[in-house]
Design a protein around this nucleic acid. Structure first.
Lengths: 111, 111
DNA sequence: ACTCGTTATATTTATTAATATATAACGTTT
DNA sequence: AAACGTTATATATTAATAAATATAACGAGT
């Protein structure tokens, strides 16, 4: 059998998407760069799109995921909160567990 | 914690999508109606889109998923093969198992 | 031969999503 | 007060996707 099984998972808060693969990789890039604009650039994403995503995450999460500062030394920046780190960690481990689970499920079929 | 975890799964054959949620519901509608055009109508889907999907499934699957006949009594029709039934059955059970698995995973987090 | 309801296919139009461009606001540093 | 790199926001443009429209082909039955 030459089939493969794929999946996408995401977390919702009150029916709205909170966190998916794309948002997680953006948050990780923010963690590494300390800047939203640099994170966007590193992912070849427009700043506007990145800002919209991060803003949406912050609005919908139970606690702040990211803290931003405007102006000042370096012009400002964006950092991940501890809660944000918790969130992306949970997402990534569940995601990997899901992949393993599905691969196992497929091998149990008679396809 | 008010978060929910959602997922989409699909089966690929050589890097191309073979079967996802939409295709499965189309195949099930074909099974019920015996007709591609009626199945499309019942899902408020254009015939063209439905035909493209079904054609793609048939091309990529290891065996025929659907058999079509043109003209004749009733104008023709489309029926699901035994292999097609096997395929949608596998998809649906794995999909449900996946949902349960993910719900369980989420409750194990400290979110 | 003609009708019927279906499959098969191409072309055009409309809608949606993504991208690009522009500008304002901010606050430390010099 | 001027400069810098950032966040914040709006608007316009382009690209991708979905939907609508039209037409041909088929073959059993009348």
């Amino acid at each position: 059998m030459k089939y493969k099984i794929k999946s996408k998972i995401w977390i919702e808060a009150e029916g709205n998407i909170l966190l998916g693969r794309g948002r997680v990789s953006l948050l990780k890039a923010i963690e590494q760069t300390g800047s939203l604009s640099k994170a966007a650039k590193s992912l070849n994403m427009s700043y506007k799109k990145a800002w919209n995503l991060v803003n949406d995450v912050n609005l919908r999460a139970e606690e702040l995921v990211v803290k931003t500062s405007i102006g000042g030394k370096g012009g400002g920046g964006t950092i991940l909160t501890d809660y944000g780190k918790l969130l992306i960690n949970a997402f990534e481990t569940i995601n990997e567990n899901c992949h393993n689970f599905l691969d196992n499920q497929l091998t149990k079929t008679s396809l």
